[in-house]
Design a binder for these strands. Sequence first.
DNA 1: ATGCCTGAAGGGTTCAGA
Length: 301
Amino acid sequence: MKGEGTRTPGTVRSVRIATWNVNSVKQRVPRLLPWLDDRRPDVVCLQETKLTDDAFVDLLGDELADRGYAVALHGEARWNGVAILSRAGLDAVGMGLAGAAGFPHPEARAVSATCGGIRVVSVYVPNGRQPGSEHYRYKLAWLDSLRETVAAAPEATVVCGDMNIAPTDDDVFDPDAYADQTHVTPPERAALAELQALGLHDVVRERWPNERVFTYWDYRAGMFHQDLGMRIDLVLAGASLAERVQAAWVDRQARKGRGPSDHAPVIVDLDEAPDGDIGPVVPPPSAPRAKRGSARLPQST
DNA sequence: ATGCCTGAAGGGTTCAGA
C-alpha cells in the first residue's frame, strides 16, 4: 500500500513550528502529549526538559515515535535541556553552540537540526540572575556565540526558544516592576537586537504589533489569571521563512488548567510555497486581547 | 514573608527560576 504520509498533489501544506519551555518534560507529559495531538505541530522546540537524553528517550521515545516524531536531544540531569521534535525531517543535528561559554561549567542550552530544509535552533538562553554578576556576563557571552552560529546562514534559519529577554518595554506587564532586573537591561536587549540584525524577524511581534502578548507568567500570586507576564519566548525567523508566515500566536490554553508550565507555547505556521498565494489569514484561536494593566511583581512589596 | 509557586535532588532541606 502506498500513499501513507503523502499529500494530494497541488495541496498547499503549511509547516507548523512551535516552541515551548515545558519546565520539566517529566512533569509535563500529561500536558505535552494531548497538546501535540491537539495542535499537531510539525516541528517542536522544547526547553527546560530537565532530563538526560537517555531518560528522555525512556520517557517519551515510544509516544513520540507513535506520533511520527524524530527527536534531537541535548539534555542534562537536573537543569536546562533542549530538544527538537520533528516529523518534517531531522538531519544534521548539532548539540550546543561552537565555542559557547559555560558558567560555572558548560550547560545544555542549544540543539539544532535541519527539518524539511529549515535550519531550526532550539535555545534556552541563560537566565542572568543579577545584572553585573558572573551569570549575567555568561548570558551575554552565550548570546554572542549564538549570534556567531546563526551568522553563518541566517536566511533559512529559525531560532526558537526561551530568550530570557523581553525585547521592549511593551513585552512586560509593567516596566517599572522590572527596573534594573535581568531580561530588560540595555545590554541584553542590545545582544538580542544584534542577533535580529542578522536578518531574523520576531514574527509574533510583527503579526501583533500593538497587542498585549506574553509567553511567561510567574506561578505565584495569580499572575497568569491577571495576565501579568512577559514575552520572552520568541520565534526569530530568517527572511525567506518570515515571508512565509501565515499565523503566529501564543497558545495560552496550554498555560491554563491543571499542571501547566509557567510558559505558554508559541506557534507559527509557514506556508509551503514561498511565492504562492497565501490566502485569507484566519485569526488564531487564542488571539491576544486586552491592553496592558499595571501591577506589581509578586516579591516587589 | 524579603521566593507568595513549582521542580529537582537528596535528605528531613536547599537551590534555581525570571
